[in-house]
Amino acid sequence: MAQLEAETTKSGIDAIDRKLLRALQEDGRMTVQALADKVGLSASPCLRRLRQLERDGVIAGYSANIDQKSVGLPVSVFISIKLEQQRARNLDVFGAAISRWPEVMECYLMTGQFDFLLRVVCADLESYELFLRERLTQLDGVAHIESSFSLGAVKFSRVLPI
């Protein structure tokens, strides 16, 4: 028991929780019994730990990883955005606007030359042009937009190195 306590991190996650999280990242659809077998617990304590990780927000949700090409969205565009002013209100307004757009898969507030980095998916060049013209360029306060088209993913992972 002392070893488990020593392995608990600042976040309260111990070695067994880490095993559980790694296993779920590999296969989020495994049964509680299969998960328990994989981490060396019986089903009841495994389920209790799982529910606690969910309550604590460590497990933020469950989803399926969909291949974007298979659903007609083969184009990924990385867009760097520079705002006219970097005041909190301007950052919030921009963030709220792009949060409503389903094409925006990810958005990060950045340091450096640009204020935001977005990853947008679309069907083709024409649909990206429509997104650019009818959405991005219509936002007040945008000073500069730079688009970079992905030629292909070298690595894409949602598995955290825990």
Rank of each mutant, 00 (worst) to 15 (best):
G12S: 04
G61C: 10
L91Q: 12
L91W: 06
R87H: 14
F94P: 01
I79N: 03
A96M: 10
A36T: 08
E129H: 10
T8C: 11
F94T: 03
E129R: 14
M105I: 12
E103A: 15
N90C: 10
F94A: 04
R87P: 00
L117H: 09
E103Y: 05
L53H: 02
A97I: 07
Q52F: 01
S70W: 00
S80T: 07
D14G: 10
I98T: 13
Q85T: 14
T9W: 06
T8M: 15
S63I: 04
R87D: 14
M30T: 11
I81Y: 02
V39G: 02
I81V: 15
R89H: 08
K69Y: 05
S127G: 04
A43K: 14
E7H: 10
N65Y: 11
V58M: 05
G40D: 08
V120H: 02
L130N: 09
R48N: 13
E54F: 03
T9A: 11
E7V: 05
E84M: 09
A15C: 06
A34H: 11
Q85Y: 11
S76I: 09
Q25H: 09
M30W: 06
L24P: 03
L53Y: 01
S76M: 10
L117E: 11
L50H: 01
D124Y: 07
Q86V: 09
V71R: 01
V104Y: 10
K10W: 08
D67Y: 02
S80F: 12
C122E: 01
D92R: 15
R87E: 15
C107D: 04
D56M: 01
E26S: 13
M105N: 13
A97Y: 07
L24E: 07
F78W: 09
L35Q: 00
S99N: 13
L24F: 09
I81A: 03
S127F: 02
G40P: 06
G12T: 05
R29Q: 14
E84A: 09
L125F: 11
S44H: 08
M110D: 08
F114P: 00
D17K: 06
V32H: 13
G12A: 05
T111P: 02
R87A: 09
G28D: 05
K10P: 07
G40T: 05
G112A: 09
V121R: 05
I16K: 05
F131E: 05
A15Q: 07
E126T: 14
E106R: 12
D92H: 12
D67P: 01
L35V: 04
I13F: 01
L118K: 04
L109S: 14
R22N: 14
L117I: 11
S63E: 13
V58C: 05
R22E: 13
Y108H: 15
K69Q: 12
C107N: 14
